[in-house]
């Protein structure tokens, strides 16, 4: 047991580069999942992680969130190796939305969102708990469920409540693993806009997303992962070329600009027999 007990500090303002991966290698069960990833996460920006299944998107997110140890290289948080921070210090700087949502006991939706405030207990920021919780419920359109037990909600509703919990945490770095996976059309767009709003507040947002159109529409930058490496990183319009996507996904696609927004729109080439 550790005797030394460091006082957790307030996170302060978000630096320009709240998180980064440097020469990051991660091994899981003997297999090398990430093979040398360099990536800067910048404040005020939405970064989309895209790529085929098994490319290492979720692993990269888990390494950035401090869940996984690097085999070599490492993940930085506020310019320090993430493992050097205490759990509480990390929690005051980054929030994570995991892929699976589970709550063991019938806590109400409000109570679940309130859990997001835990890192601030006993600090001056706790004075704003009520305000932050109400705000998070409103922004995810979950206020109507507030008194209901979390376990009684549908999958998509649960996903939004968990997102509300992440927003309530009020962290400078927000890591979202497939936040739109279980959501309907309206709420996918809601989450997209929400990510933009969070970035506009000065936070850094990283989302793992499968829907390339969604990434193209809402991300400032996208990193395309392929077999544990970053195949390309930059503005969606630069990264999403028919040739590159076709190669990485092993599926021919066509890319054309959306007539309304100008963002690239990716359509698989289908042969209907």
């Amino acid at each position: 047991m550790r005797i030394r007990r460091r006082r957790a500090t307030d996170a302060g303002a978000v630096p320009d580069r709240p998180a980064a991966a440097a020469g990051l290698h991660v091994r899981l069960g003997g297999k090398e999942i990430l093979r040398g990833v360099d990536l800067d996460v910048r404040s005020g920006e939405v970064l989309g992680l895209v790529g085929p299944n098994g490319a290492g998107k979720s692993t990269l997110l888990a390494a950035l969130s401090g869940d996984l140890e690097a085999a070599s290289g490492g993940a930085l948080l506020w310019d320090r190796p993430i493992g050097d921070w205490s759990a509480l210090d990390v929690a005051r700087r980054r929030a994570v939305l995991p892929q699976a949502h589970r709550v063991s006991f019938p806590f109400t939706v409000r109570e679940v969102v309130e859990m997001g405030r835990a890192p601030w207990a006993g600090t001056t920021r706790a004075d704003r708990d009520e305000e932050r919780i109400a705000d998070a419920l409103a922004r995810t359109e979950t206020e109507d469920f507030a008194p209901r037990p979390f376990t009684s909600l549908s999958g998509g509703e649960q996903a939004r409540v968990m997102l509300a919990r992440v927003i309530a945490q009020d962290a400078g770095l927000v890591l979202l693993d497939e936040p739109t996976a279980a959501l309907d059309l309206r709420h996918q767009e809601l989450v997209g806009r929400l990510c933009r709003d969070l970035a506009a507040e000065g936070r850094a947002v990283v989302i793992v997303v499968h829907d390339l159109d969604l990434a193209a529409a809402y991300a400032d930058r996208t990193a395309l992962l392929s077999q544990g490496r970053i195949a390309s990183c930059g503005k969606p319009a630069e990264v999403f070329t028919a040739e590159r996507l076709g190669g990485v996904y092993r599926q021919p696609v066509k890319v054309e600009p959306d007539p309304d927004t100008g963002a690239p729109r990716v359509t698989p080439l289908r042969r209907i027999c």
Binding site: A134, A138, G172, D197
Partner: peptide
């Protein structure tokens, strides 16, 4: 981050969601 928040969305009155607890 509260400190850096530029566009703080108007907070809903907390009472609306306070009843059940």
């Amino acid at each position: 981050m509260t400190a850096t928040a530029k566009t703080e969305p108007e907070a809903r009155p907390a009472s609306a969601v306070e009843a059940p607890p």
